[in-house]
Amino acid sequence: MRMRILSTTFLASLIMSAAACGDGSSSTESSIIAIDGSSTVFPITAAVAEEFRGTNAAAPVTVGFSGTGGGFKKFCRGETAISNASRPVSTSELEACAQASIGMIELPVAYDGLAVVVNPKNSWATSMTVAELKKLWQPEAQGAIMKWSQIRPGWPDEAISLYGPGVDSGTFDYFTEAVNGKSKASRGDYTSSENDNILVQGVAGDEFALGFMGLAYYEENQGRLTLVAVDDEDPDNGAGPILPSFDTVRNGTYRPLSRPLFIYVNSAELARPEVAQFLDFYLANTSALSKEVGYVSLTDAELELVKARLAARTVGTMFADHAAQSSMSLTELLQGHQ
């Protein structure tokens, strides 16, 4: 008998939801602010959206995480108003958008640091140069650099086990670009996972492991991992090996493994008042919220420049010139592109 009641209620609920399917919902759809893109930027945008829903201006917001590249594909088809990106837009993506006559406003919203981490039992690798990281991670290292002693003489003659994000992640793109000089160029014989928590577990459980991941994952697991200081051998932005921290990422001395995170806005969508309100709200709150979800906030001066960029509706990218990108700080770039 109880079973019959159960199945009847279930059928009733099915029928009711089927009825609910029938009535259109165009009223909410037209005002939706659709966002997609990088899963790294996702927590910041989702946090802003969460706070935005408490304001008077609240319009429904949807955020996907199909990746920086996947996000731009949708953005350039006009399917989203805002695209999250963990790297600057590429030339080919810019062209695709231009062909669809979609103008994009590039807004840096936070910094992220990439942490190189080892097991707490590891007493030797307290710092590494970018050249040493490259020696270890470049494609030629596959099957060749297998022991710690091969990276620096004097380090243990033990097999090194490597952990890193999967090839579809923006973190992987950025690390390979910064260390190996070419995006996606990497050795393939390492343990990869799209889930950074798996990497944390791997490195925490293996004395001879080394891995890289977002700085936030180190901060949540400080007792289980040890940071490696990174030396880019360029005294102009901090001499010697530098540990990633809120300050060193922010002041640009933790180079090259710190990166700005962006949102790109469809300039035509700014005509919608709810989109404009959402962006004002985003820039007003990104400092506090990005910090809360584990990222490094922009400096106040940089944030003012970003706000001015939005107010002026400056279309296009600051990163078209790759040489300038690697030598200039975000502040310089923002000042140069007002």
Partner: peptide, 20 residues
Amino acid sequence: LITIGALAYLDFAPSGLMSP
């Protein structure tokens, strides 16, 4: 579903067949 563009953050429940 991720491939076809299902979302990760929604501040409303779907209300019809054409809802995200």
